[in-house]
Nucleic acid binder design. Structure first.
Lengths: 245, 245, 245, 245
DNA sequence: TATGAATGAGGTTTCATTCAT
DNA sequence: CATGAATGAAACCTCATTCAT
């Protein structure tokens, strides 16, 4: 039986990077390329991909419809045909991005693991996902620059996000019941801490790198950061374990 | 009775919000006591204040020189007279914002406190500053949307930021020597964690609030978050304290 | 009875003004016989014509995009649609002007005439063209004010001009072989002299007229000047003819 | 006694470059730097020099008052103090430039030479002056771009120019009387030809060089051009001389 | 469904000139 | 005489969006 807080001491290097869809690819639901799939869908999907990159890259105001149209297999007119306006396109991009992360998160199946192990897996997944999807991070940043004005318009996104808390809540309760997590914590607060640590790593890497002259994008630096974050979260949640003398 | 480090147990509600300059006030260098040179400085300063709000509000591309000019005591032409271009103005705003936080941070005088106390004060300051200066947070967000392209042009900012690490490093070492901090940690990594937790609270409050239907801006919610962050950081750094059985 | 070369003696009043396209008309490539593609070409062409006048009139810096747009059948926006920038438009104007003169020059068919006659025709053409196309002259002047900076960017123009020398070179050689031209001259130098005399007549007419109180624009004055120039060039090239005593 | 047309045959390499004030220097009348010369004059003179360069370089519309002020030893306000407006300054520059060439021309003292020799000297001087004073050439070009509108306002310039014709006229008549010049020519026309050949060499060197891929600015090229021009003018004026067999 | 042409409103920047001291 | 600050008008250019076909 463990007498020490294993998570804190043992950097969970063994927590394998969670397999996600390959980064930057954003045609998850197109299924197999069966011939019955019509061009229209593909056109809209193609626009969405290009737009995701552009909006993530430049923000809403900085993005250019012309630039999107040029990188697209179709014309500018089609953008308006499918998405009505720049704002409509942006909204579609945003919804698409949010749906993707939550759908993967749901597939983690944390119930199958011991609470401590599950927590480490959850944090590791969050970290890996942020690192693998900078576009998502940038879209969320941009959304906050606009005070969440676009997100507020989309009901679908809000529903999607709620589930994240539910998963974490169930996990936390299991841990408390098992006596490995200390009680009195709050799932939303915990989720926020996890998100903050992961999000910042990607979101602020440019200013942080410049300010402190460190390259934070190297695999080595990322691995260290990943360990540090998992450690920090585990220590935060874990019940204090009496150490033998 | 408490057998463990008081910091972790005692949410440092007693750590008083650090006095900062009042938010949005931005005439730090006004101190020069000469009265004969009012106008020029004041005009430029006035532009800088207004521009800070506009850039923080809308981002670089979204900000409008016209809008800035209108909120100013002078004309659009003067903006170009003093700052050459939209980019020049943005850079001045960015430099100003960074200098402000670092200069206050330097005034914390952490050497006068016990390591654990000092750490709590530092985190508390960071949290309070971010909450009190959302404009700073938004400027940094925006800068990251642009991949730090503007920051990269400013040497002065980069120098300014380095000092933050120095302070934290000295503090951390004191704590290690005193046996209250565990060894093997890294000041840059620690600084990043603190920044991440504080930054996210302000930066992502809109999307987070919408996603999880919580108002995170209420004094009560902020106080709870503040406690949670300080606790998390302290637990991360603190030496494991042997509990008597 | 004349014992000397008739060219020098006989002012070539009989050298008819060379038929050129009517001045200021600038739709040379309209020839493509497809009727289905009218609008785009016409719009761009219309802009080009108006711009030619404006740039010739005021120079590059003095020209106003707004002024051009107003004289056009379309809007200012279209200028940018077709020509990207003020500079792009100017370049198009310049290329167009150069191509026009060279294409006509090529149509002179000097090979069909005796060398002396051909030379007279060439000079006469050059004179007439300059007089008939002051816009061309002014564009070139302006280009020289800018140190040929725009011309340097256009490869097409440089290719076009080379042909002028080729024509003159062949003509000169024929004259030498026939014994009517003296040897030792240089085609580029000769071309320069011809250009100088013709160009100046149009280019400097304002300052010259004012300085010497002569109206140099009257048909009579132009005819006299034309004769003088042809005479001067012929005398320059012509072989000294021994006079019998 | 010469039996051949010496000018045409003998390239007047012996015609020494006429000594002019050193190129680009434009403070000819400031006399010696005696202490009694006041600052005011010097200030105005300094402005004039700088403005000459700027106007010659960029043309009237392209020139920037700000740019002139910056290269000046004084401030922008002084430009307006001395010259009232951009136009006033340009006019002063123009007058200054014209006065300079004519005053030197008057000092040639052509009466002291044989007509043919004098003519060669005159052409040589004209050529050398143009080459040595590209600023003058460019100002005149610019003036013609503006249809001589500024020159028309200045009476002083027009008076100055008339004398050039008088000198040439006297020279031509002497040559006719001596039987070395053919009769029936016109001094204004002759002056125009000389000016055209010299002016073009400098004025159009950029477009010409680019069009024909020749460097026309090298000392060698200029010397050849100089010879060619003198030769051309002399042949144009000279009485046909019977050649002995 | 698709496209190239077209557009008006508004964005950033520049410039000659004047004012207060 | 001299200067730095200030200015309004207008210049060049961009953008999301729509029209004709």
């Amino acid at each position: 039986m463990k007498t020490r807080s294993p998570a804190a001491q043992t950097p969970p290097a063994d927590v394998q990077p969670v397999a996600t869809d390959n980064p930057e690819d954003s045609r998850p639901r197109r299924g197999r390329p069966s011939a019955d799939r019509q061009a229209p869908d593909q056109t809209a999907q193609n626009i969405l991909e290009v737009a995701t990159r552009e909006f993530a890259d430049k923000g809403f105001s900085g993005a250019r419809i012309d630039a999107i149209a040029e990188s697209t297999r179709t014309s500018k007119r089609m953008i308006y045909y499918y998405f009505t306006s720049k704002e409509g396109l942006y909204l579609a991009v945003l919804e698409d991005a949010y749906k993707r992360i939550r759908s993967i998160e749901s597939g983690l199946n944390l119930d199958g693991f011991e609470p401590l192990d599950a927590l480490q897996r959850l944090v590791a997944f969050a970290f890996d996902y942020h690192v693998a999807h900078p576009d998502f991070v940038r879209l969320v940043m941009n959304e906050n620059i606009h005070n969440g004005a676009f997100l507020a318009k989309s009901e679908s996104i809000q529903q999607v996000n709620r589930s994240a808390i539910d998963h974490l809540n169930r996990l936390y309760r299991r841990g408390c019941e098992a006596g490995v997590f200390r009680t009195g914590l709050n799932a939303v607060d915990l989720h926020m801490s996890i998100s903050a640590l992961c999000f910042f790593t990607v979101a602020n890497r440019h200013t942080f790198s410049l300010s402190f002259k460190r390259d934070l994008s190297s695999p080595k630096a990322l691995a260290a950061r990943r360990r540090s974050i998992i450690d920090m979260v585990v220590r935060h949640v874990q019940q204090e374990v009496p150490t033998p003398h």
